[in-house]
Amino acid sequence: MSIKADYFEVFGLARKLEIDPEELQRRFYEMSRRVHPDFFQTGTPGEQAGSLERSALVNRAYRTLRDLVSRVEYLIQLEEGRETKEGAAGIKPEAPGDLLAEMLEVQEALQGAKADGLDEAARERVKAEHARLLERRAVEEDGLRVLAREWDGVGDGDGNREALLERMKRVLAARAYLNTVINDLGEALGGEAQNHVSHRRH
């Protein structure tokens, strides 16, 4: 396994988005064993360092590929890296205007409710909003699964590839906006409803 292998190559997988989680785990264990630093304790310093690097790569690859969203993010990065080399610039997905306006509205309502001390009625409203947006996010994620299957069906050099990447990027963007608001609503409720921590607000 080369240090320069992409995450799919690490596990000998084709660049496809539908991955059987059990199969991925099996290959992860196998690769982990094969590159484990313990096997190289008597090796040269170069071999030891190489083993460490490979272990780290195998771990990173597994963490990235086992979750559909991070898998799609990674695939987009790979595909766009390739595009850039060929001269085409990666396109930032156009902000979904309606969604942005709606998220702003929800945030403003939340801010108002918090300023008023968040009484029982307001808490109920925030809870309902939180549940509604969790549902929305689930719908987006279902959409991403459909697009992932479509992606796996198109061959190299197919004109649909770029359009599919664009659509996946749009879903990821929508999901990011939803995540932020879901987290903020969850925080206002005291964190009990918060089950998503991927958002990084510094």
């Binding site: 902000a95 942005l100 306006a101 998220m103 702003l104 945030q107 990011a176 906006y177 995540n179 607000r201």
Partner: peptide, 13 residues
Amino acid sequence: GLVGAPECGDVMK
């Protein structure tokens, strides 16, 4: 102007 950052979900008006 209403814009957003898809990387982090920030919204700016």
